[in-house]
Design a binder for these strands. Structure first.
Lengths: 340, 340
DNA sequence: TGACGGCTGCAAAACGTTTTGCATATAGTG
DNA sequence: CACTATATGCAAAACGTTTTGCAGCCGTCA
């Protein structure tokens, strides 16, 4: 392992002082040194493969150029990847790196990890959840600029970003109404979470707008899983007055709806149209026919969180904001006009 | 934001020198200071909420306590989460933190990210791929201790860890044979990758062991996707001498096999048994009936990689090793004895 | 009583940067 | 030619640790 080359080596090789090298390389201060010298120093630095030690510069500048990302159940959800990628892309574009920790549901461990992040002098922290929820962030975060990702904080002093759940429900209804459906049911998640309330509210609002009432018996809630969706769909689709279209809380429940339809001898989309939420490629692309679904903007939320954090770091007085990011429709083949 | 408390503040508050505080807190050197003093210093440090600045100690010790994890397509695969979690858990248990970067398929970007990691003085790097493959690692990694994760390197000087693909195929065959099947087909991935070769070889070896030949026409390769699995299964299951059991390259292809079976009026597992590989909860748990499948040990591989890296850091002369981790069977309901 | 050894604890240097203040050299002006 | 203004580069301090070498103090033993 070639022993590391430091700024002193560059100075020696270029025949100038350490100061001059630092200035020459610093963009902001390079005006203080002769253009020809700058050129020369850069060449020498390049030849030597010099790369500044960020530990040292972080120490000196009180700015580590590291952002912490603390998340919960990264393992059990397929969304984590997109969120991390969005955050990392944004960070990388601005010369920052991401330190990722996750602690499952263990609060004590989470606080410990946050302290570890702080010891490494992270410049700020993204506090991420894997599904939209209301959280109260650990108190150790008081000491660090923080953005809440895919959740809202009880502390309004923290900026946050969540999907536009209402809009997702609204767009799904629009899609089905535009296809000509009138008898549309929703298979909701039984949990008391913003996504369930928001999607239902948006869905209902859009139907209202079109003069279509959503009858109570056309909203059935189940466990948020394929099995839960299957049971709910079995119920709805075996009624005498069955709906011609189903809006499902998520793609997993929509997968259950497909299974129920198949079991009852109904075809998607000829006999029943289905719309999901999440755009899990694995499911939405895998189902046959492909599932039209509202994509959850995990990548964009990750990006937004980092950008916002960097902005607040730059400008500590910037107002805190609470962003909702739209959920675009991804059309596949699960929606068709109702028969007859 | 309360201004940070440093070791000097602790020393002042405790009425001793900075050195003494450092020694008292250092476990290894705490013998150099009176036990009562140690006690006192620890108390004061606790009261003040002192936490050592790792940037500074890293600079001084030439040991950042940071590990880099560079991966490719974290977004598009659901495995990334488990791999990262495994790595992070192991790192955290040993007082290290993980810096995660991913670069999609952009090699230039990847090298850039690796250099960024190096600037932050990571102690070592995990070079991870999202599916088992042969790689030649970027040359910048020559300068840092590196472990290859879910891939093998053309450079044998790098330790690596992959799933036991052969074993997965072997166990799958064992399961089906034990259930009484004789006419068993494999739906393989058409790509020229270790997983495809390994699983097929293991599968074939186990059948051989039981005196069952795997006829060439019972190995059909398709695109690694639900659609690819569907087509292959459609082919296999509509033959006059159709197989009674299908071993699928992965869970997505198995999902396609379910669809094909459904389409042909065959039931799983009564008419055809199915086994997958991956144990993607989303699919394996979501399918109806649940899919029996060989779990890919992503969590364990992540763990192993970090542990091995830490070990090589500790002990640079440790021999490099190339590990295969077993793929345990996760039984659900997709296997039953053949009819008649 | 004097010397020696063992405990304690301290001062200072080092890790690799960045930046301020100052010194020198050069050019510009009356 | 004297003097000022400007351009260029350097030395040194600081960021917060860790660790080596040394000094003071105490007790012990001859």
């Amino acid at each position: 392992m070639a022993t590391k080359v430091n700024i002193r080596d560059v100075a020696k090789a270029a025949g100038v002082s350490v100061t001059t090298v630092s200035h020459a390389l610093s963009e902001a201060h390079s005006s203080r040194v002769n253009a020809r010298t700058v050129e020369h120093i850069k060449a020498v630095a390049g030849d030597l493969g010099y790369a500044p030690n960020r530990l040292a510069s972080g120490l000196r500048n009180q700015r580590s150029q590291i952002l912490g990302l603390v998340s919960d159940e990264i393992t059990t959800t397929p969304f984590a990847g997109a969120m991390i990628q969005g955050a990392q892309d944004a960070a990388s574009e601005h010369g920052h790196l991401l330190m990722v920790v996750n602690s499952g549901l263990d609060n004590e461990l989470e606080r410990q990890e946050i302290r570890a992040l702080q010891q490494h002098q992270v410049d700020g922290i993204i506090f991420a959840r894997m599904f939209n929820q209301q959280v109260s962030v650990p108190e150790e975060l008081r000491a660090v600029p923080t953005i809440v990702l895919d959740a809202t904080s009880d502390n309004p002093g923290l900026s946050s970003v969540v999907p536009d759940e209402f809009g997702a429900g609204d767009s799904a209804a629009e899609l089905l109404v535009a296809a000509g459906h009138r008898r549309i049911a929703m298979i909701n998640n039984e949990d008391d979470i913003p996504a369930a309330h928001g999607r239902l509210a948006g869905f209902r609002a859009a139907l209202d707008r079109h003069g279509l009432r959503l009858p109570e018996e056309f909203v059935v809630a189940g466990h948020s899983s394929t099995a839960g969706g299957r049971e709910a769909a079995l119920d709805l689709l075996s009624r005498p007055e069955r709906p011609t279209a189903l809006f499902c809380f998520n793609d997993q429940m929509a997968m259950g709806a497909y299974q129920a339809a198949g079991h009852l001898g109904l075809r998607v989309p000829e006999d029943v149209s289905v719309v999901g939420v999440d755009n899990l490629e694995l499911i939405a692309d895998g189902l046959w026919p492909g599932l039209s679904t509202m994509a959850l903007p995990h990548y964009e939320m990750g990006r937004w969180a980092v950008l916002k954090l960097l902005n607040e770091l730059e400008n500590p007085e910037a107002p805190r904001t609470h962003e909702k990011i739209p959920c675009p429709l991804v059309e596949r083949q699960s929606v068709a006009p109702p028969k007859g």
